[in-house]
Computed example of a mutant assay.
Amino acid sequence: PKGKILQGMKQGLCTEEVFCAYMRESIRGALWDLMQEEVEAHCGRRHRPDREGRYRRAGSDDGVFYFAGRKEAVKKPRMRERLTGGRQREAVLESYLAARSKRNILSEVMAMVDEGVSARGSQRLTGRALSSSEVSRQWVKHSARRIEELRGRDLSKDEYFGLMMDGVFLKETVVLVALGIKKDGSKEVLDFSVGSSESYEVARSLCSRLQERRFNVRGRLLAVLDGARALHRAVEEFWPDAVIQDCIIHKERNLHGYLRKSDHPEC
């Protein structure tokens, strides 16, 4: 129903929030995978633990990592090291220590994705001593690999009625993001390209990849764009009958420039 769709869209997050949540969860998941690899290298597989080994699993605990300069929560597995005389002590996870000290993971992941560096050859942690910089590189590769998999998935299995395309300004990078709008009004990241929405080449490349991945639209596409002419041109090329609407949030931001700050809440 139209009312349900509109309600879902109004309650949804803006493009920047959806994209940052997507990147944050990808990077968080990659860190979890990396920590689990380290635990498995020391303790053996969960269903076949090394009971005579030096280390054993000890549940999990709350931890933090940094994303876009802010602390984010993450679950971290725990290990105990067996000592002489039956004593034990908490073992340090090198992967977690590296994550705690890293502040610019997002920029490095975006750079790897932009350069097209293959992350599929990223190695598993083996339990041997690694430098903090090597562990950090593995985290970046694991994150890029997760993002590659999400960006490459077949879109024909889901049905969308709308497409949002907007430029997102990260700390050191500008990214053109494409969100799919589903029948319930929810939004999800479909793909992105490093570059401005003012660039026709960037916009056209993004639209082309969506079509190659069989972006599934029933009826006419509703395209919500940030107002850049390059975006309009690219969308009209691939979906000639699309209904194009400029993003209301961008209109509001433009109006703010003509108002006193005290009047912004009423805009």
Score class of each variant (00 low, 15 high):
Gly8Pro: 01
Asp154His: 08
Leu150Ala: 13
Ala242Tyr: 06
Leu97Tyr: 02
Arg145Thr: 00
Gly63Met: 06
Arg54Leu: 12
Lys2Arg: 12
Arg70Cys: 07
Glu201Thr: 08
Val92Asp: 02
Ala99Val: 11
Ile105Thr: 11
Arg28Asp: 04
Ala242His: 08
Asp226Phe: 09
Phe19Asn: 09
Gly167Ala: 03
Pro49Gln: 00
Ala178Asn: 03
Lys76His: 02
Asp158Lys: 14
Val174Met: 09
Arg151His: 04
Glu172Pro: 00
Gly167Arg: 01
Asp166Ala: 03
Glu16Phe: 03
Arg229Ser: 15
Ser107Glu: 15
Ala21His: 09
Gly116Cys: 07
Gly257Met: 13
His47Ala: 12
Ser122Gly: 13
Gly180Glu: 06
Ser197His: 03
Leu225Pro: 02
Arg209Glu: 14
Ala41Ser: 14
Gly63Phe: 05
Phe65Trp: 13
Cys207Val: 04
Leu206Ala: 06
Leu97Gly: 06
Ala242Val: 01
Ser156Glu: 05
Ala242Gly: 10
Lys187Val: 04
Ala99Leu: 07
Phe192Leu: 05
Glu52Gly: 14
Lys141Arg: 12
Ser143Met: 06
Val18His: 11
His256Tyr: 15
Ala68Pro: 06
Tyr96His: 12
Asp241Arg: 10
Glu94Met: 05
His232Pro: 00
Trp139Ile: 11
Val175Asn: 03
Asn216Ile: 01
Arg103Phe: 04
Arg220Tyr: 06
His142Gly: 05
Leu130His: 11
Gln88Pro: 01
Leu130Ile: 11
Pro1Ile: 14
Gly69Pro: 08
Met23Ala: 13
Arg145Leu: 15
Tyr96Glu: 14
Ser199Ile: 07
His256Glu: 14
Lys157Leu: 05
Arg120His: 12
Ser156Leu: 03
Val175Ile: 11
Glu159Thr: 14
Arg56Ser: 12
Arg82Pro: 06
Lys261Met: 08
Ser95Pro: 14
